[in-house]
Design a protein around this nucleic acid. Structure first.
Lengths: 167, 167
DNA sequence: ATCCAAAAGATTGTGCACAATGAAGTTGCG
DNA sequence: CGCAACTTCATTGTGCACAATCTTTTGGAT
């Protein structure tokens, strides 16, 4: 880690670097399944809730249609899913697993343990880090809402509380 | 936050979501300066060390030339920096601030406080989160090194120790 | 019935990330 | 010296993110 500089003190850079490092650890494992990391996240949702709509996928992944549409097209081209217009409401597109998409599930189930082992983190460590990050994200999203200026202390407190749990 | 699903338990998703949320908070502030977040990070380095080489930028930002070359071209086109081949070793490209790039510095100096205020985090909270993330990144990078399999417990311990500081 | 606003996706364009490859310069070794 | 290995950066191609805009469909509201 060569950053003896200003970057070391930027929390946003740390998040950015950590996220890319984590994705890099997943990459070789997911490549064996023919998936990228965003594609893997989408498949995780689909394995849990087949037939989900694009809108619901977007809410869970925090991605818009501009990202999801081409992503779904690539997964459909790879044979892992199918997209069907919902009959009752033809605006909605339902995403369904194919047999090939189902098959992938068993192989993918080993991945979380492989990642945890690669990073050498205990389940407790992972859960704790995960919880803290979820609260950071919540605080940051709250800062983006239109009324953020009106309630400047709402989100921060939840993060502060979360971090104090560790001290 | 709609993720009542499997994603909530994926640490890598939390990092990915937190990183994008943080960048989203920076975006409107940086847009006023005409910068993207990666461009801002690069300018931070340049303000601290004018004349740095592309290789050094890559080491600090953890980015390769495939990302940096076009990024530098855009910043040069925007008039914030100039690229000059180093005379002693013409393989090396030195990146220098322009007057316009220098001017940007004073405006940008307000940004970290604005971010901290927007997220409502204290300096101590930021430092603590930052430190934890840096260690997570270190652990993940260690997991990617060729000899990771030989020393499966080296990196993990540092992270575990870091997290135990909080408990 | 008709028109209008909202909802759900798709499309277009820009800017990262990153793998793979290439080109130009430098170094070291026989 | 000659040249092979290495260093540094650029280029190409793929796949996200995200803003902006568009199309189709739906659900009213008159």
């Amino acid at each position: 880690m060569g950053d003896r500089t200003i970057l070391k003190h930027q929390v946003c850079f740390s998040l950015y670097a950590a996220s890319r490092a984590a994705t890099a650890v997943y990459r070789p494992l997911l490549a064996q399944l023919g998936l990228t990391y965003p594609q893997y996240l989408l498949m995780l949702l689909l394995w849990e809730r087949d037939g989900v709509s694009v809108k619901e996928l977007g809410e869970e992944l925090e991605l818009d249609s501009g990202t999801l549409s081409p992503l779904l097209k690539r997964l459909e081209a790879a044979g892992f899913l199918e997209r069907r217009r919902q009959l009752e409401d033809e605006r909605k597109l339902q995403v369904h697993l194919t047999a090939r998409g189902e098959e992938l599930r068993s192989q993918a189930e080993q991945i979380p343990q492989q990642i945890a082992r690669a990073a050498g983190l205990s389940a407790a460590d992972l859960a704790q880090l995960n919880e803290t990050l979820a609260k950071v994200t919540g605080a940051l999203h709250a800062a983006l809402t239109p009324n953020a200026a009106l309630t400047p202390n709402a989100a921060p407190n939840s993060l502060t509380a979360s971090m104090k749990e560790h001290s």
